[in-house]
Amino acid sequence: MTRTAPATAAANALPGLPRDADGPVFREPWEAQAFAMALALHERGLFTWPEWAAALARRIRLAQAEGDPDSGDTYYHHWLATLETLVAEKGVASAETLERTVQAWDRACERTPHGRPIVLQPQDFA
């Protein structure tokens, strides 16, 4: 699989990023989507990679202090939490909007049979 230059640049700028010889690796589709969202926001100038790395390191340290064993399987959970924090801090979306969206996804997941695509519908935001 060919990696894009921005993805490779991100992998090189973030030494803790799970990767192989070709670049970032993901265990689940949502991990790749979270990575892509951060990449897109970086490309739009929302944050620099050093700023991102510092915010992610803070998130991981906090999680470790709360008992995260840091076995590698929670890395993208921290990635997503960091993304949500920076989006709120930068004023792109409020914490309330982010929480409303998380709840909408939860509702959509609950009604979707296993193996089927999850589709958000207007009632999910009610």
Score class of each variant (00 low, 15 high):
2 T>D: 09
76 Y>F: 15
88 A>I: 08
27 R>I: 00
18 P>H: 01
13 A>Q: 05
38 A>H: 06
86 L>G: 08
97 T>W: 11
16 G>D: 15
86 L>K: 05
112 T>I: 09
113 P>S: 06
32 A>R: 15
29 P>G: 04
91 G>P: 07
110 E>T: 13
105 W>L: 14
46 L>Q: 09
72 G>M: 02
126 A>W: 01
90 K>H: 13
32 A>Y: 03
18 P>N: 02
50 P>G: 00
119 V>Y: 04
15 P>N: 01
118 I>W: 08
84 E>L: 08
35 F>K: 10
52 W>E: 03
48 T>S: 15
21 A>Y: 08
59 R>F: 01
103 Q>A: 14
60 I>Q: 14
87 V>S: 03
97 T>Q: 15
16 G>A: 07
7 A>V: 02
119 V>P: 03
70 D>W: 09
109 C>Y: 15
36 A>L: 02
37 M>G: 12
79 W>T: 07
63 A>W: 00
62 L>M: 11
11 A>N: 08
3 R>L: 14
39 L>P: 01
113 P>K: 06
119 V>Q: 12
24 P>D: 10
30 W>V: 10
107 R>Y: 05
32 A>E: 15
72 G>V: 03
30 W>M: 09
81 A>G: 06
71 S>K: 08
84 E>Y: 13
63 A>Y: 00
110 E>C: 08
47 F>V: 02
41 L>W: 08
43 E>Q: 14
74 T>W: 01
38 A>T: 13
47 F>E: 03
64 Q>Y: 01
36 A>E: 11
101 T>Y: 11
51 E>C: 02
11 A>H: 10
95 A>M: 07
19 R>Y: 03
16 G>W: 08
113 P>I: 05
105 W>G: 14
110 E>H: 14
16 G>H: 09
78 H>R: 09
88 A>D: 11
4 T>S: 15
55 A>N: 06
89 E>T: 11
